[in-house]
Design a protein around this nucleic acid. Structure first.
Lengths: 116, 116
DNA sequence: AGGATCTACAACCTGATGGTTGTAGATCAG
DNA sequence: CTGATCTACAACCATCAGGTTGTAGATCCT
């Protein structure tokens, strides 16, 4: 299973986007329900422009999409990006487990007399 | 289940640490086997000092630990931090699924005549 | 039409990031 | 002891990130 072939830059953007509490909160909210940018902005101690930028970062990371709806821009969450992040973390955990397996193998080998 | 009560700053550090290809590669390698800092450094087109800094970032994020071993410093991976990251992402996905459930509920309500 | 609201974008400032070089202390090998 | 290696750390530099204000175009409401 060759999966996705995600580039480093994409992964960088994904994790970078998640590395900010405000952005994580935005993700949380738009996963639950769509919100316009200014709706989102009302709940944070910063300008609308700042929130716009956060949304832009999330959008470039694929965590969020915007759709025009009259004069406002509705922001919605994209679980697919979350899943990609999970898959990546999973892959690292697999490495770890594989290491455990190898250690176990070596021990077993030694018990039986080893490869030498 | 109240889980962990992880602070925003911790999560910031975690994802920030993962938002760099070199650091991810270091994590990958030390999850497979311990490596000294200079061993790690040999494979990257940058100074040992730069790699030291990357390792420091990973350590502050809890993704890695260092143990002195003579004159060298062995770096090892800590899967626990990875799992925390996974749990966080999982929580977001739960929100998404819960949203689907609610939508389904609403549809079902409407089919049966709704709440009004 | 006219005002209020939502968004977009440029310009700017400040602090953090990611890299460098240089110096110096420990430790290992001969 | 001496030299080589590994690490630590300070100082420095350029770029990026996160925030601001200001201006302006669309859209909605009355």
């Amino acid at each position: 299973m060759v999966v996705d072939q995600v580039t480093d830059a994409e992964v960088d953007r994904l994790f970078r986007a998640l590395a900010d509490a405000t952005r994580r909160d935005i993700v949380r909210r738009v996963l639950v329900a769509e919100h316009s940018v200014s709706e989102l902005a009302r709940d944070y101690p910063m300008s609308v422009t700042a929130v716009q930028k956060h949304v832009a970062v999330l959008e470039e990371a694929g965590l969020v999409t915007k759709r025009r709806h009259g004069r406002e821009q509705r922001v919605a969450g994209r679980p697919a990006a979350l899943r990609r992040a999970q898959q990546l973390l999973d892959a690292y955990e697999q490495l770890w487990r594989h290491r455990i397996d190898r250690m176990t193998d070596v021990l077993a080998e030694n018990d039986r007399g080893g490869t030498a």
